[in-house]
Design a protein around this nucleic acid. Structure first.
Lengths: 276, 276
DNA sequence: CTAAACCTTGCAGCAGGAATAGAGTCAACA
DNA sequence: TGTTGACTCTATTCCTGCTGCAAGGTTTAG
């Protein structure tokens, strides 16, 4: 049986010649014969078995170094351990991707709500499911000092947030809380900011639940409309004598990428639970 | 409010200084001020908004070029389109990872079966579910010419296999078929080889189903034991007058990474369905 | 004998940084 | 004013798993 040139070997196995040269160089799969004068590589057809194995292990997500190590050690138990690790690895990757997918869904949903939301800043009733948030009290009132303090507040949240190892993919869906007592006194005081997180995160310090219920909501477009919106919401609630149940939430539904000036462009949903 | 040095900006946002310098270089996020004498970068705190957005988009799986483009175009619809594409993208990645996961499970299962399988090459009864295979007839009898022809047969299968866009992760779980007629005549003739594939692949040419039922199975360790095993299986079937239903399958349960010599090291499961 | 196909080495490039060196700068303290 | 230590600058190299190109040598079919 004749020897295979690199091209035949490559075509037979659906890999490129460069790939075979690379495997030769890193000693992962070396041709059984090299003509010392011409440097031509010649493979034996039985070497296809190894190439199969390499491709298989690559498909499992292993990198070339690990594959090489596996070949060298020739240890079944080690290979099984590698498989176990690889499975865990893949599991984590899938989890991460699922997060990303969920986040995209959330973003798409946000945009859809943005598009259908009432533009006239009128309060509307909405029934909302319970949602989980990661909350952080910065002790600085985000409403009293303008955007720059708001950014500082957000930075404090973010620092704490990454400390808790939440994925960055949630960090576009933030909000702030005006606690019940302040809302009732019509004070615009919010020292706490939060990020919406998934239900799968167990409770720890900072994790709170915004309860399910009927909310009065008001949508407003842009940071400069937020305070006005909050005042309108208060007016509406108090003039109709609705019984306020919990805290007032100001949620950023959508944030748009912007670079022309440094200001954030966001679409808010203000909301507070009421009893009928 | 004072300007932020690169270090402060980095620490505030949980990124490295190098990353910020890279973003500056590719004009993704440039400091609002650079001291022309010292070259020091100074950021405004409001620029954190952009960095948030970058990190968010990165978490969605976008690359820096797309992120930059999004910032430049400032187009909501384009961003939504990007989100849609990204969702599809993530979906595909998850699918691929699920395949890999399944394959690893299959490999682990194979090793477990390998460990508990009877060592003495005695036929055993096993009830087996239906399994789907991608089959290819090479017209060459794999048993008549030894390993080198077997490799050629496998190459032909592989070529066809990648042509059909099946993932390489299945390619460790191959087998060959001795058709009913040959088996009944005790002929070791197998021109067809196959790969086990998942049920989710729809039927097309080459895809067959190995039916559910009771099988007589015989495990053997190594290529050199395969023919002997087949003969033992035939002896057993015919001496007990079992009624053979379909074709005889020789399946590679486990293949081990090997590099010392070029020979494959595999563990076989020979199987044929019988009627009680 | 020629042309086509094939092979060789070596280098450049992708993404998204990490890590390093060597030099310059800044703020605080004595 | 000097010194220290923390900080920052640029520039370069490295990582993975290849792909692609250029310049040149080899093999093979007709």
């Amino acid at each position: 049986m004749e020897k295979l040139t690199i091209g035949k070997m490559a075509r037979m196995n659906g890999v490129s010649e460069q790939t075979l040269r690379l495997y030769d160089k890193i000693k992962l799969l070396q041709p059984c014969e090299i003509n010392p004068e011409t440097g031509y590589r010649y493979y034996h057809i039985k070497q296809c078995a190894q190439l199969d194995m390499i491709q298989y292990m690559k498909a499992l997500g292993m990198n070339l170094a690990s594959i090489k190590e596996c070949f060298e050690n020739q240890n079944i138990d080690q290979f099984k351990e590698v498989l176990r690790l690889q499975k865990q690895n893949i599991h984590n990757q899938i989890d991460a991707l699922r997060h990303a997918e969920k986040t995209i869904d959330r973003a798409i949903e946000g945009y859809q709500r943005y598009e259908v939301a009432p533009r006239e800043e009128m309060p509307v009733f909405e029934y909302q499911k319970a949602r989980r948030i990661f909350c952080y009290d910065t002790k600085i009132n985000a409403y009293s000092y303008g955007m720059e303090y708001y950014e500082q507040v957000l930075r404090a949240l973010k620092k704490n947030y990454v400390l808790h190892r939440f994925p960055m993919s949630y960090f576009c869906n933030v909000g702030s809380i005006i606690r019940h007592e302040h809302f009732m006194k019509r004070e615009l005081i919010a020292t706490e900011v939060f990020v919406f997180i998934d239900d799968e995160f167990e409770s720890s310090d900072g994790v709170e639940v915004i309860p399910e219920g009927m909310y009065v909501c008001l949508y407003c477009d842009g940071f400069n409309r937020e305070e006005e919106g909050l005042r309108k919401l208060m007016d509406y609630i108090f003039s109709h004598n609705y019984q306020v149940v919990g805290d007032c939430i100001s949620e950023i539904l959508v944030e748009l990428p912007t670079s022309s000036n440094y200001d954030r462009k966001a679409f808010f949903k203000l909301q507070i639970m009421v009893k009928r």
